[in-house]
Design a protein around this nucleic acid. Sequence first.
DNA 1: CGTTAGATTCTCT
DNA 2: GAGAATCTAACGC
Length: 206
Amino acid sequence: MPVVPRSFFSRPAEDVAPDLLGCLLVRDSAEGRRVLRITEVEAYAGPLDPASHGYRGKTPRTAVMFGPPGFLYVYFTYGMHYCINFVCSPDEECSAVLIRAGEIVEGVDLARVARSGSTDRDLARGPARLTKALGLGREDNGRDLCDGGALTVLERESSDFTVATGPRVGVSTATEIPWRFWIEGDRTVSAYKAHKARVRPSATPS
DNA sequence: CGTTAGATTCTCT
DNA sequence: GAGAATCTAACGC
């Protein structure tokens, strides 16, 4: 299967996102090869999208999102999780696709070690689980997906599935924008959860 | 199967 | 200082 070229990513994320469903993310490491079949994604735009990390302009964290397409954007959240995005749009513009879930189709043994305690179905069922199952982290931020290196995306073998769309998961703003895309009926798609503001006990009650 | 609380620290205001 | 593009365990049915 052909490697996805940089021009594929040089479009708005909402156009790239559905085209990524069914594609394979190939991750080579010292331990061996892991391959993920992508089943669920979300698109995030730039300064006009209040749910995007790029909403308030370029910062040290989001610099990669404003750079050229075809690179990996890794962010840290909830004090303990990493998630991965594919940067889209031409250089200087900001958009990206969050890889939310997938099925491990090669290197299941390695993914099981990385996510001990998980069932095979749940290995990459969720953005942080997926990142951990593939052994990716902060150090992979900014990696090139199109240089033929150890992290590449292969075109899908078939488009024999239905694409479903809906609101983005865990997002508290712009909930009317249906920029979540998934393969209908696929068991590895994560469960939808609306954002819920968390309440922390106050250390200084009045 | 479903729902819910708590964990834990980075990032930008 | 507030809140976050989440996960897991624990509970109830």
